[in-house]
Computed example of a mutant assay.
Amino acid sequence: MSKLPLSVAVGPYDRMRPLVDGDVQIEGVDPTFMLQEPEEIFFRAFRHADYDICELSLSSYCVKTAAGTSQYVAVPVFPSRAFRHTSVYVNTNAGINKPEDLKGKRIGVPEYQLTANVWVRLFLEEEYGVKPSDVTWVRGGYEDPARVEKITLNLPADVKLEHAPEGKTISGMLEAGEIDALIGPRAPSCFDRGAPNVKYLFDNPQAVAADWYRRTKLFPIMHTLGIRRTLVEQHPWLPMSVTKAFEKSKAVALARLSDTSATKVTLPFIEDQLRAARKLMGEDFWSYGFAANEHAMNRFLKRHHEEGLSSRLLDAKELFHPASLENFGI
């Protein structure tokens, strides 16, 4: 029987390399991999459903699933996870010395509904009492003024969302003091090039995030993996084949990362960072699968609905194909 030729769009992560290089196979599939940045994948997936299998923004996928309009169904594979305490940048002239000082300020976002921004607003409110209605949100592209919000939103009436002025970027506005802070999954270029008046909100975001994890056991999920719904209907074996392959690819990548006789990552002290992550979060610190992540998913879905992003409160199991929620045993 010939294999199913499918397009697969994912980021160029170490946990994907065994699949991309052919060291791990997806049973029954002849894949064509496209390694792209998340912004391109999400735009093409949610606007045009360009791919057979692809990374999906968790937030955008939840918006579509709640509305019953998603052309993809996910499996519990999470290609991107990140603590987002490094995602808040402030202008040093704005009088922001602690998170509570964000109240009353103007905060730029590349898109309001981005997954990273949902997680940031969650901890800003729960830890520091800063509600979405306490600030004015300014939506605009990091570096491209033409960037659009790819998902239609229906926000609560008390949330103030403006568009950046025509021709302006939120990176440029932050540096110029036209907004007071910026929240998003990428660092703005003004921060990367060392603008003297732009810094992290948290002086030591890693320490703050580690403390938050100890208390909440939340390692934020950013992206999940979607399969075109029509394909799953035609080939019911596909969700489990995809789930198994991505699990195996991640396991191979972690085994390679653990071999520090010659480090696989272009970063010194990687072995110490790996040891610290396992001490803080356990051996399977980047877990796939439903059961290990139900807690984080439920917290995210509750917040997502409270913010008016998902039209109804989703059950975490609704997000994933039923065949991918369980596995066989021997």
Rank of each mutant, 00 (worst) to 15 (best):
S2D: 10
L6V: 00
S7V: 00
M16I: 15
L19V: 08
L19Y: 04
D21F: 00
V24D: 05
V24G: 02
I26L: 09
E27A: 15
Q36G: 00
Q36R: 14
Q36P: 03
E37C: 05
P38G: 11
I41F: 09
F43P: 03
R44F: 07
A45R: 15
D50T: 15
I53D: 06
C54E: 06
S59Y: 09
V63R: 09
V63F: 08
V63N: 09
K64F: 03
S70A: 13
A74W: 02
P79M: 14
P79K: 10
H85E: 00
T86F: 00
S87M: 01
T92G: 02
T92R: 11
N93P: 01
I96H: 02
I96E: 04
K98G: 04
P99L: 06
P99M: 05
E100P: 04
R106G: 01
Y112R: 09
W119F: 01
V120N: 11
V120I: 13
E125Q: 15
R139Q: 13
R147I: 10
T152N: 13
L155W: 00
L161Q: 11
E162F: 02
L174C: 03
A176F: 01
I179Q: 01
P185Q: 09
S189R: 12
C190F: 05
F191Y: 14
G194E: 02
P196D: 08
P196Y: 10
K199T: 15
F202M: 02
D203N: 12
Q206T: 14
A207E: 13
A210R: 04
A210Q: 08
D211W: 01
D211Q: 15
D211Y: 00
R214S: 07
K217S: 08
P220D: 03
P220Q: 07
M222H: 15
H223K: 06
T224Y: 14
L225H: 06
G226Y: 02
I227Q: 05
I227N: 04
R228P: 00
R228K: 15
L231H: 08
V232P: 09
E233L: 06
Q234G: 11
P236W: 03
P236H: 05
L238W: 04
P239L: 08
P239K: 05
T243M: 08
F246N: 01
K250E: 11
K250I: 03
K250T: 02
A253C: 09
A262N: 07
K264H: 09
K264Y: 10
V265P: 09
V265Y: 10
L267I: 13
D272K: 12
F285P: 04
F285A: 12
A291V: 08
A291Y: 12
H295E: 11
H295F: 14
N298C: 05
K302L: 15
E306L: 12
E307S: 09
G308H: 04
G308E: 12
L314R: 05
L314D: 08
D315E: 13
E318A: 00
E318D: 08
A323H: 03
